[in-house]
Computed example of a mutant assay.
Amino acid sequence: MIYAIGDLHFDFSKEKPMDIFGLNWENHEEKIIDNWKKTVKEDDLVLLPGDISWGLKLEDARLDLERIDNLPGIKIISKGNHDYWWSSMNKMESLNLKKTKFLHNNSYEYGDYSIVGTRGWAARDSFEFSENDEKIYMREVGRLKNSLDTAKNKKIIAMLHYPPFNQDLTPNEFSKTLSEYGVEKCVYGHLHGKGHKFKFEGEFLGVEYIFVASDYLDFDLKLIRED
């Protein structure tokens, strides 16, 4: 089985309570962990597209990452905009996590699928995008292509943190790239609360998009692919 859930926003230090964003976030870590243990088996795959831990440095995030690693299943983590702890692959792999892989200019194989992805960036038609964001935006498009270029000749599932299309649901460089490479499914998150109105789920330019922000899923995991 392949599952996905984004925006865990774990915080071992308890200095970033998420319930300021709504009562549904109260004890959200416990909800995620309980649902995870009820659902995921050891040989299942769990995709985690960004905003994993509030830790500012890798050492700060270590306890959150170890807690996730100890949960059932194989995990693949890609970067979110709040993952300030994200570091080089060598440093992240030096944590010696047993069942967790990091996605950055690379891909991973699981059964019939190649898993690819990157963080992505805010859409050009969003209020948060400025001309200073253009360089980051195009760099992220390049990283997505780098990841896709490493994929084997298999079906492809992509992980992005930001929605990979414009807010008016027209295609952008991310969605166009996913379609050009023949990606089957794409999971993404980032949007919370009132931002859910900007989500899209379903087929778009031949790719199936699945929105997996944790609060949208009521802190449960979304089944992406059955065996």
Score class of each variant (00 low, 15 high):
Y108N: 01
E226N: 14
G50W: 07
E184H: 10
K176I: 14
Y108P: 07
K176D: 15
L56R: 15
M89E: 07
P49W: 04
I156E: 00
H190V: 08
L8E: 13
E59W: 09
D43F: 01
K222V: 06
T118S: 05
K38W: 02
D83C: 04
Y188A: 10
D64T: 00
A151Q: 05
W36Y: 14
K91W: 07
F219E: 07
H190S: 09
L144K: 01
D11H: 12
D149I: 03
V183D: 01
F21Y: 02
I77F: 09
F200D: 02
I20D: 03
L58M: 12
W25Q: 05
D218M: 03
K98Q: 08
W25C: 05
S147A: 08
F219K: 05
F174R: 01
L160C: 10
S126L: 04
I68N: 05
T100S: 06
N106Y: 06
L23P: 07
H190L: 07
D125V: 01
Y188E: 11
M92W: 12
E140M: 14
K194H: 11
R67V: 09
K79D: 01
V212S: 10
R67W: 06
D43W: 00
E184R: 11
K16T: 11
K37P: 03
R225G: 00
E134P: 07
E180L: 09
L71R: 00
K99I: 01
L205C: 02
H28W: 00
K38R: 15
F200Q: 02
H192Q: 14
M138N: 13
D112F: 10
D220S: 13
I32Y: 02
K99M: 06
G195C: 09
L63M: 08
A122T: 15
G111Y: 06
K185G: 04
V40A: 11
G189W: 06
D34I: 12
G142H: 00
I157T: 13
I20A: 08
E128L: 09
E109C: 01
G6H: 05
L160W: 04
D11I: 12
W86L: 14
T118P: 00
G189C: 05
Y209W: 03
K197A: 01
Y137C: 09
E59P: 02
R139N: 15
N146D: 15
Y188M: 08
R139I: 04
M92Y: 07
M159I: 10
L48F: 09
K197Q: 07
K154R: 15
S94A: 11
W121C: 12
A151T: 08
R62L: 08
R119L: 06
A123L: 06
L148A: 06
G80H: 02
E109D: 04
L191Q: 14
N81V: 01
L103F: 07
F198W: 14
L71A: 00
Y110S: 06
L56G: 09
H196R: 10
G111L: 12
